[in-house]
Design a protein around this nucleic acid. Sequence first.
DNA 1: CACCTGTTATAACATATATATAACAGGTGG
DNA 2: CCACCTGTTATATATATGTTATAACAGGTG
Lengths: 131, 131
Amino acid sequence: MLIEIDFSSDEAIYQQLCNQIILGIATSRLTDGEVLPSVRQMADEIGINMHTVNKAYTILRQEGFVKVDRRRGAFVSVGDRNRERAIRLVEKDMRVILAEARCRGLSKQDMLALVDRIYDEYDGGIRTDDQ
Amino acid sequence: MLIEIDFSSDEAIYQQLCNQIILGIATSRLTDGEVLPSVRQMADEIGINMHTVNKAYTILRQEGFVKVDRRRGAFVSVGDRNRERAIRLVEKDMRVILAEARCRGLSKQDMLALVDRIYDEYDGGIRTDDQ
DNA sequence: CACCTGTTATAACATATATATAACAGGTGG
DNA sequence: CCACCTGTTATATATATGTTATAACAGGTG
C-alpha cells in the first residue's frame, strides 16, 4: 500500500502513518494477515527514520491492529473485538467532532449523511479517484 | 462553565481547553454572545499560565468560535457559516474515526446510532449527569 | 554464517508545550 | 488624569515530544 506523508503537516509523521494504515485496513487495501514492510524497508521507501516507523508499528500493535511474528515480521491483524469496548473507545473522539460540527451549523441529518457516505466508500472497497 | 483539565493526559492543555469550550457551545452551556473569563481569570481558576489560555482563545478565534471586543474581552460567537465548507472541515477527521471504528468491527448502523445518540444529547441541552 | 526480523539503548537536535516576568495599546470608570 | 481591566506581544527558560543517527542485541531463515 502506498503511504504518503505530508512533511509540512502539523500532524506527527508516526501519527500520519498510523492513520493511513488504519485507513488502509478499513478500505480493504490492507487485508487481515497481510505482511507489512519491515521497519527499515518502510523507512527507506518513505524517506524517514526506522524509529519513526517502529513507533507507529508499536502503537498499532498496542491498539490491536498489528501483530508481530518473529519469523515473518509485522502483519495486519483485525482480530475479533469487544463491541461495547470499541464503541467506548470511539465515542470520545466522536463527541469532539460532533460538537465542532454542530457549532458550525451542521445538523444531525448532515452528519448521518456524512457517516453513511464515508462508510459506503469503505464497504465499497478500493476507490480509484482521490482519497 | 466549569473547565476541567486532566494534567496527566497526553492531550495538550490548550487543546483540552479548546475542545471543552466547543463542547460547551454545542451543548448550549455556552451561548452566542456570552462573555468568556479573561485570559488571566481563566488561568487563575484552572491553575495554569495566562499564555496557555491565550493560545486557546487565539485558536478559537481563528476557527470562528470566539470573537474579541476591546471593551468586553472574549465572547462566544457562532456566526453563520458556509455549510459545504463546514462539512469539508469535519470530513477528514470523520474518515479517521470511521476507519478505526470499522477496523474494530463496528457496523455503519453502530456509528449512525452513536451519532444519533450524541446529537440528541446536544440538542437536548444541558445534561445533569456525567459529561 | 550471513542476513533478515523487531527491539532496545544512547546521543543529538529541532520543535512544541508550558511557565515566568514584563511591557504595551485600548477601553472603562472613579 | 488615574487606576484598572482587556487582549496582545516580547523575551527567556524549562520540559516534553518528535525525529534522526549509530549501534547493538536476540531470535528466526536459508
